[in-house]
């Protein structure tokens, strides 16, 4: 008799170990639960809520939900899909996500998750916030327009790079990413393109300078494969690879 612990995800038995979250176990079993602020290599954050699932009638973030024996997890009912679409729509209208001209388009997780979720329109009224660019760093750019406050750069810079370049400041709608330097400028931090945090951004908020649209349409990460097939590791590898390219000599 097998002693493997399992829970059900859309009717399929998913094995898990003690301490696993529903997200951990599902991804390991090859089941995709949409996520933006989560990366399997780093501690969960539970901020974007796009990984919402239904468990025993409650909707909760799967990236922070401990798996337990006998759970019945709903990852694909129309209720869940609609809630995900709404969360994505709110992310889109809260920032300025101009996909048609964005250099991350085709490689962007937010865009890919929105396609996967079947989001066809922003639905809500755009906020059109006035946000700037921080171009003070000699090699990297920060685009406030595109930041979805997932906190991945914060966690990776702190736990992997041991630098704490980033933090989220403010509350509610006034939350924003800040940089750990006396001037508040990215250029005055010790951030480097070789940092793990430089390639972890799921959107086009943190990008290398002097490069854009290097990958032809048709060869971008999500041009032909949905994000459920591409996976997190491939996305990270591609982002790191781009950072190894150089810009113009100065």
């Amino acid at each position: 008799m097998s002693t493997e612990k399992t829970f059900k995800l859309d009717g399929r038995d998913i094995p898990f170990d003690d301490g696993d979250t529903v997200m951990d176990a599902a991804l390991r079993a090859g089941e995709y639960i949409p996520h933006l602020c989560h990366d399997p290599d780093f501690p969960p954050h539970g901020s974007c809520r796009v990984c919402v699932v239904g468990v025993n009638g409650r909707h909760t973030a799967s990236c922070t939900l401990q798996a337990s024996e006998g759970m019945d997890v709903d990852n694909s009912s129309e209720d869940i899909l609609e809630e995900r679409r709404m969360l994505l729509q709110m992310l889109f209208v809260e920032g300025n996500h101009t996909c048609p001209a964005c250099e991350k388009s085709g490689d962007c997780k937010l865009q890919a998750v929105a396609y996967h979720a079947g989001m066809l329109s922003p639905h809500f009224t755009h906020f059109f916030p006035k946000r700037s660019i921080d171009a003070s760093h000699p090699e990297m750019m920060f685009y406030y327009n595109r930041c979805i406050l997932c906190g991945l750069c914060v966690r990776v810079s702190k736990y992997e790079d041991k630098k704490s370049v980033f933090a989220i400041s403010g509350r509610g709608i006034d939350s924003r990413l800040v940089f750990n330097s006396p001037s508040g400028k990215l250029g005055d931090t010790d951030f480097s393109p070789t940092d793990q945090a430089a390639s972890v951004c799921p959107v086009g908020a943190i990008l290398p300078k002097y490069l854009g649209y290097e990958t032809p349409i048709g060869q971008r990460l999500y041009d032909f494969k949905p994000i459920s097939v591409v996976g997190d590791e491939t996305a990270r590898d591609i982002a790191k690879d781009k950072l190894t390219n150089g810009g113009p000599d100065e």
Binding site: A101, I133, Y210
Partner: peptide
């Protein structure tokens, strides 16, 4: 104005 120069070919064609 205020955008990085490498965006120009894609941005301005709009």
């Amino acid at each position: 104005q205020g955008r990085p120069y490498w965006e120009l070919p894609v941005l301005v064609q709009r």
